[in-house]
Amino acid sequence: MQQVLKDKIIEVCNKKIAAKGENVGVSFYAFFKNKNDNPELLMEAATWWIKTHKLNHFEKAVKIKNLVENL
């Protein structure tokens, strides 16, 4: 996973956790704007989320953050 994607995932998870608590959920779409301005990075995130880890559409932000930090 590219460092830019790792950094973005951790940043978004930290913000969501700070705003809504440890039980907040996220999907991989949370790490991108509402437009597809970087399809390669979006596909990298989707592949990691869906194919590699077989995660549900929404997962706990804490879980995602831990997975990324331990890459």
Rank of each mutant, 00 (worst) to 15 (best):
M1S: 04
L5N: 01
K6V: 11
D7E: 12
D7S: 08
I9C: 00
I10V: 15
V12F: 02
V12A: 01
C13K: 02
C13I: 00
N14Q: 13
K16Q: 11
I17A: 09
I17K: 06
K20S: 10
K20N: 12
K20H: 11
K20L: 09
K20I: 05
K20C: 09
E22M: 09
E22V: 15
N23D: 13
V24M: 04
V24I: 12
G25R: 06
G25F: 05
V26N: 07
V26L: 11
F28E: 05
F28M: 10
Y29P: 06
A30L: 07
A30N: 13
F31K: 07
F32C: 11
F32D: 09
F32S: 13
N34K: 13
N34F: 06
N36A: 10
N36Y: 13
D37G: 03
D37P: 02
D37V: 10
N38Y: 04
P39K: 02
E40R: 12
E40S: 15
E40W: 09
L42S: 04
L42V: 12
M43I: 01
A45P: 04
A46E: 11
T47G: 10
W48M: 01
W48A: 00
W49Y: 02
W49R: 01
W49N: 00
I50C: 11
I50Y: 14
K51W: 03
K51V: 08
T52A: 12
H53K: 09
K54E: 05
K54T: 06
L55E: 05
N56Q: 14
N56H: 15
N56D: 13
H57F: 15
H57N: 10
F58V: 14
E59N: 07
K60D: 10
A61Q: 02
A61I: 01
N66Q: 15
L67G: 07
V68T: 08
V68W: 05
E69A: 08
N70Q: 13
